[in-house]
Simulated scan of single mutants.
Amino acid sequence: MFRVQFKRLPGNEDVPLPARMSEWAAGFDLHAAVTEPVTLKPGERGLIPTGFAMAMPPELEAQIRPRSGLAYKHGVTCLNTPGTIDADYRGEVKVLLANLGQEPFTIARGERIAQMVFQVVPRIEIAEVGELPDTERGAGGFGHTGR
């Protein structure tokens, strides 16, 4: 089990901290900490504050992902998905939302806007080599296995 610390930022005592909406949910829902409603017109994007900062162990990253209901019902999604929050970041968590829908979408204070999923990040050693080992696939790229 990993311990993640959350710090509610001043003026956001009324905004819920991230929470799972069901016992086995992978993601923690994030709430908007806007001071007044923000309307995104079709095609617009906006950086929405959440009202908290956090500290997590170096073995973790947090990924910001869209909420499926907002994406399906309104065409509202996250850009840079999944957005990565590194373990050494201590600033306010913000969500980059985009309205890909046909109608303006208004974000109210406290509204659930995205979800955050924690992932373990393996430690990687980079090794420069002169040649790579062969595989059956080789350098086959986009569409190499068919349609």
Rank of each mutant, 00 (worst) to 15 (best):
M54D: 07
E44F: 02
A71Q: 08
A127G: 00
V38A: 12
I85E: 01
S22M: 06
N80P: 01
R65M: 02
A55R: 15
G141K: 09
Y72A: 15
D86Q: 04
R137G: 07
L47D: 05
I113R: 05
I107D: 04
R45E: 15
G51I: 10
V121F: 08
G83N: 01
R109F: 09
K41P: 00
A62S: 07
R65K: 09
H31Y: 15
V38C: 05
F105S: 03
L40Q: 02
A114P: 06
F142H: 12
A127F: 14
T39W: 01
G140C: 02
M54S: 06
A55Q: 15
K41A: 13
M21H: 12
R147F: 13
R90M: 12
T145W: 08
G101M: 05
A108W: 12
T106V: 09
R147Q: 09
V38K: 03
F52A: 12
G46P: 00
I107M: 02
L60T: 13
Q63V: 04
G91P: 10
R45K: 14
G43W: 13
R123N: 07
G69A: 11
E103H: 03
L100G: 10
E125L: 11
R137I: 04
V121R: 12
S22F: 04
H31K: 11
T135K: 07
S22K: 04
P122S: 08
A98L: 05
E111N: 08
A53K: 02
G146K: 12
P122K: 07
K94T: 08
I85V: 14
R20G: 01
H74P: 00
Y89C: 02
S22L: 04
E61S: 02
G27L: 10
G43N: 09
T145R: 13
V129A: 13
A87T: 05
E61H: 03
E61G: 11
I48V: 15
G51D: 11
A62I: 09
G46T: 05
P66Q: 00
H74L: 00
V38L: 13
P37A: 12
G140K: 12
Y89W: 09
P37D: 11
R112W: 07
L132P: 11
P133Q: 15
R112E: 08
G43I: 05
K73H: 08
G46Q: 07
G83Y: 00
I48W: 00
L96C: 10
G46R: 07
H31N: 13
I64W: 02
S22D: 14
G75N: 06
F105W: 06
V129M: 14
V117F: 08
P133A: 14
R137S: 09
E103T: 03
G138P: 10
A55E: 15
A71I: 07
G130M: 13
E92S: 00
P82D: 08
Q115Y: 14
P37F: 13
R137D: 12
G146W: 07
Q63R: 15
G140P: 05
F105I: 11
L96Q: 00
V117M: 03
M116E: 04
P104L: 05
K73E: 10
G27C: 05
I48L: 14
M54L: 14
G83L: 03
D134V: 14
I126Y: 14
R137E: 13
Y72P: 00
T106F: 08
T106I: 04
V76R: 01
A98D: 01
T35E: 15
I113V: 12
V120C: 01
H31W: 11
I113A: 10
M116R: 09
P82K: 01
L30K: 08
